[in-house]
Design a protein around this nucleic acid. Sequence first.
RNA 1: GCCGCCGUAGCUCAGCUAGGUAGAGCGGCUGGCUGUUAACCAGUCGGUCAAAGGUUCAAGUCCUUUCGGCGGCGCCA
Length: 430
Amino acid sequence: MSVKDILEGKLTGKEVELKGWLVTKRSSGGVQFLMIRDGTGTIQSTIHKDEVNEKIFQETDKLTQESSLALKGIVKVDKRAPGGYEIRVNDLQIVQLAVQDYPLSKKAHGIDFLMDWRHLWIRSPRQIAILKIRAEVVKACRDFLDEQGFTLTDSPIFTPSSVEGVATLFETPYFGDKAFLTQSGQLYVEATMAAFGKVYCFGPTFRAEKSKTPRHLTEFWMVEPEMAFFTFEDNLRLQEEMLTYIVKKTLEKRSKEFEVLKRDTKPLKKVEPPFDRISYTEAIGMLQKDGFSIEWGEDLGLPHEKAISLKFEKPVFVHRYPARTRAFYMQPDPEDPKVALCADLMAPEGYGEIIGGSERIYDLKLLEQRIEEFGLPKKAYEWYLALRKFGSVPHSGFGLGIERTVTWICKLKHIRETIPFPRTTTRIYP
RNA sequence: GCCGCCGUAGCUCAGCUAGGUAGAGCGGCUGGCUGUUAACCAGUCGGUCAAAGGUUCAAGUCCUUUCGGCGGCGCCA
């Protein structure tokens, strides 16, 4: 028996037993109103003084916010109750009487306080809605890829060296040696790809950069598909289909949560293939025309991504960035080797990049040359180079940031609410 | 790392411009109310004004430093 079933009208008139937590309590003397949360929803329960024994009524009167309890009662339709249903209680047992000073009141709190109490904050309606949507996004990613014949092959979290040799990594002792927390599982899925054809990894990644922005976490989750024999174009198409699937499934299954968040879902309903595409070179021209002082060869910052994103109703690919500014493994464009066959996907409504992808270099000589040009330690990449020696094939892949995607889908101002326990440069508690 | 803003009751904040008895709402507690919707009404408890130093007869208020947070930028798929 769950609140969800009651609110769907499946148990009207029936006697139910409900176990859950007390969200709030109101009283008008002879009637007490309890809002009960059980994980599937929240429902009002009423206790009338003349309908239960006096001991239960008095105990209920002493109930504190977030106490856990079990109750029995009859489900009734009542227009006065939020949600249209309520339980008329005839028996109630306290599982644990919460200590009186529950820190999160019904009034406003500041972000620092809420983050200090994150372990309790996740019980609030808004946080429940966001985390439900996150769970749906994760499920959609996995369902989509599994249905498309992908195999899940997770990459290690302890790694021996930097994947791209640039970003700052978290270091940890490893039996007298050093290990680093992964910043991308990509190189490893390139290996498993040769065993399974289409693969993906899904897990946490770590960046030790001191980024202090509303779109960065030091620990975040990525899904990284890698596909054998996929061209650059095949890659973009897969991304379009996957993101469309994610948005559709989330809209379909989590409409109540969008209501809680007051998220206008109209922009999300426009997400469907094909997405718009502009080249990096076109983007630079566009930005210069808009008055940005940016030259060809410079990387796009958030203001640039935002400006581009706002020009399109759907997600937009920005492709073919200067090869010099991108990762060493990206395939140069045969028609213009100055640029790489890569694309970032910008989410609409001013949200920036949520996906980065590329076709990978599969020629051994070229890859060795690039590793040298980037000044990377060749020895650390021996195993990776071996993938080009034994049955190397053209292939492509991408990485989708779960939290950035959820931030956009929920239209949040900050990424920190999209993960149960966010890790940022200034926070590792709780 | 840089720039800006902030730190006062458990929480959200006012008080600072112009130095002169520490305030409000919410939460807690006590009592009232037989249909509440962030319930309401009455009463009550609650303070190292982030820390240290300085100016002054007098500092929550002015000055300096440190710490912590927030916002933006940078770094960063």
